[in-house]
Simulated scan of single mutants.
Amino acid sequence: MSLRGTEVAADPTTQIHKIDRPSLLSHVKYEHLIAGIFGGVASTVLLHPLDLIKVRLAVTDGRTTTPQYHSLWNAATTIFRQDGVRGLYRGVTPNVCGAGSSWGLYFLFYNATKTWVQGGNTKKALSPETHMLAASQAGILTLAVTNPIWVVKTRLCLQYSELDPSKIPEGKRYSGMMDALFKIYTHEGVRGLYKGFLPGIVGTSHGALQFMAYEEMKNRYNQYKCLPIDTKLTTIDYLTFAALSKLFAAATTYPYQVVRSRLQNQHRTYSGSWDCIKQTWTHEGARGFYKGLSANLWRVTPATMITFVVYENVSYFLLS
């Protein structure tokens, strides 16, 4: 009797299970990946010409033999006159691959981290700092996977038809995405595929600021309406919040994109990020760090609006 009593008394302690927060992997949902891919591809296909012009304006330093453009309109008309529509879509394949995979992975990592912090309760509001941390982690993980694609996209966007091919080394003339990947790896190694990675890491602050602003606006709007923070909003709401958050982030972090594009430019070589920053400042001043900003804003603002609206609706449909 006493033995059984001892067993009963001990039973509750031996059968108590430690309650742990579910692992991060348990919050990984493929729906966010698919929805992000859809959003990234849709916006890229529609707006790639503006991205190409932004890249070309960003590397225009007045000291190379590459074509020099004076404005967004001048660049667009010059490229169209020389190469037609095809010229405006140079580098579109890696851009579509890069944007689709980047947005898909970004939303996947971001939502997994955010939901893990929330303990699985999507109605729990998080602080702006937590949103920034989750977005920064998602950005670094995404960049580690996709940086080679962005190097290839930049190189293909900087294939100028008016340059004499004989003056360009064979290893820096590319016929397409796979050819560029192969030649960069062959002639420059893994390091060549990860040029611009350091400023890219700095650039994760862009996504962090954007997602923080976007989430805060959504949360405050729903709280104002006395609704749960995960309530589905209207298309107009998503468009507005996406545009405002992108403008805020772009104006704050654009210089890193200029540095990154210049490091990835096959027509000029820098010893590193700091060398690129010093040379840009010495020869062009502060204005040099904002070259291509207007083209960038004309592209990224509608691109972000399209991406987020497609993502929000596709993810809601899949998760439902």
Rank of each mutant, 00 (worst) to 15 (best):
Y194K: 07
Q68M: 04
T282W: 00
L88S: 06
L233P: 11
R21M: 13
T44R: 01
D230R: 03
L46A: 12
W116F: 13
T6D: 12
A9S: 08
T154A: 15
T280P: 07
V8D: 15
I79C: 01
R155H: 12
K114F: 01
G40D: 04
Y174G: 11
T253K: 03
L3Q: 14
P94C: 03
R63I: 08
N147M: 11
L143D: 09
Y254T: 12
Q264S: 10
L126F: 04
L198C: 08
Q264G: 09
F289I: 13
T77R: 06
Y69W: 00
Y224A: 15
T301D: 05
G62R: 04
A99S: 11
V309G: 03
R287Y: 08
H283L: 07
L156H: 02
Q159L: 10
I201Q: 08
S205V: 14
T93P: 00
E312D: 13
L47Q: 04
T122I: 05
G272T: 02
P128C: 13
C276Q: 00
K218H: 11
D83Q: 15
F197A: 15
D51Q: 12
V152D: 08
Q210S: 11
T77G: 02
V258D: 11
K172E: 13
A180I: 03
G292V: 04
G200W: 07
L158P: 11
Q266M: 15
S273H: 00
